[in-house]
Computed example of a mutant assay.
Amino acid sequence: MKKYILIAILAAAGLWSCNEDSLDASITVDSNFQSGTGGTDGWTPEYAGFAATADSTQLDTVAATALLPRGLDTTQYGYRILSRYSKGNMFSYLKKRVSGFTPNKSYEMVLQVDLATRYTASTIVDKVTFKAGVSPIEPLTKLVSGTYTFNLDKGTGNQSGKAVLLAGSIASTNSDTRYHTLLRYSNDGQPVTVVANNEGELWFFAGTDSDYKDTTIFYFDRIIARFKEL
Rank of each mutant, 00 (worst) to 15 (best):
Y93G: 04
G200P: 02
A116K: 00
V192N: 03
I223R: 02
D153Y: 12
A66C: 04
I7F: 07
T208R: 03
T193S: 11
L143Q: 15
V113L: 02
T102E: 11
F150S: 02
F204I: 09
Y219K: 01
Y179F: 15
K228S: 14
S169L: 04
T149H: 05
A167D: 13
I137T: 15
T57M: 05
G14V: 09
A48V: 01
Y47D: 07
T141P: 02
G157H: 04
A132H: 01
A121C: 09
T57F: 07
V110Q: 08
K87A: 14
L82C: 13
P103H: 01
A12T: 12
T208C: 15
V144H: 08
N19H: 10
L202Y: 05
R84N: 10
Y79K: 02
A132Q: 03
Q58E: 15
K127A: 14
S26F: 03
V62A: 13
T156C: 02
L82D: 14
A8H: 11
R184N: 11
T117C: 06
K87P: 05
Y179I: 04
G36K: 06
L183G: 09
V125E: 13
G36R: 06
I217H: 07
I7M: 13
I137C: 04
N198A: 15
N187C: 10
Y179A: 01
T75I: 06
T120P: 08
A171S: 13
L182W: 08
V98M: 00
